Computed example of a mutant assay.
Amino acid sequence: MVPLAVEYPAWAGYMQRTTALPPPVIRDPTQPLVSIVVPSLNQGRFIGETLRSILDQRYPNLEVWVIDGGSTDETPAILRTFADDERLHIVVGEDKGHADAINCGWARARGAIVAWLNSDDTYYPDAVATQVAALHAHPYAVAAYTGASYTDEQGRVLRTIAARPYHPLALLRLLIPMQPTVFLRREAVGKAGPLDCRLRYAFDTAYWMQIARYGPFIATDTILATYRLHPTSKTVAQFAGFYREWLQIAEESFAALPHLRPARRAVLADIYAAMANLEARRGQLPMALRYAGYAFTLAGWRPRLAKLPLALIDRLFDSDIADRIGSWWGWRTRR
Rank of each mutant, 00 (worst) to 15 (best):
A274N: 13
D126S: 10
M178I: 11
C104L: 10
L184P: 10
R302S: 01
D152L: 12
A225L: 05
P60C: 03
R213P: 01
D314S: 02
D221K: 14
V66G: 04
A273N: 01
A266N: 13
A12S: 15
G48D: 03
R324C: 04
L175A: 14
E279N: 05
D320R: 14
A141P: 09
Y294G: 00
G293N: 02
G300T: 04
D126I: 07
D270V: 00
A20Q: 14
R261V: 12
Q284K: 11
C197W: 01
L247A: 09
D121G: 07
A240P: 04
I211S: 05
K96Q: 14
S327Q: 11
R335C: 11
Y8L: 08
W65V: 05
R335F: 12
G69A: 14
S53L: 02
F239I: 11
A280I: 00
A276V: 00
E63T: 10
R265M: 13
V236K: 11
L285E: 03
T81H: 01
S319H: 03
R290M: 00
A240E: 14
R80Y: 03
G147W: 03
G300D: 02
A288T: 00
A256S: 15
V38G: 08
G300M: 03
Y227Q: 15
A134W: 05
I26D: 08
H98V: 07
A269N: 04
D85P: 05
M178W: 06
W116R: 15
A311D: 00
K307F: 02
A225Q: 06
Q16G: 09
I223L: 12
R213S: 10
A144E: 06
Q131N: 11
S233I: 09
L79D: 06
V114P: 08
G190C: 06
L247Q: 07
V25L: 06
Y166R: 12
L117A: 08
Q179A: 13
A115C: 12
W208G: 12
P216Y: 06
T19M: 11
A107V: 07
L158M: 15
A306M: 01
Y207Q: 12
N103V: 10
W65N: 06
G215T: 01
A263H: 13
V236D: 03
P29R: 09
A299C: 12
W116Y: 14
L195R: 09
H138K: 08
P168N: 09
D120T: 05
W208D: 14
L268M: 13
W328P: 06
T81K: 04
D196C: 09
A5G: 07
L289G: 00
K191G: 00
S40Q: 13
L247R: 05
D68E: 07
R213H: 13
R200W: 02
S253L: 04
W329T: 13
P32K: 03
G69T: 11
R110T: 13
P216N: 05
L247I: 11
A12K: 11
D120I: 08
L224T: 15
L268T: 04
D95E: 14
T205G: 12
G105F: 04
F254Y: 08
I249P: 07
L278Q: 08
G293D: 01
G190R: 02
A225P: 13
G97Y: 05
P262S: 02
D28K: 07
I47E: 04
R80S: 15
T50R: 05
R261M: 12
G300A: 04
D121A: 10
Q31C: 06
T226R: 12
S35L: 02
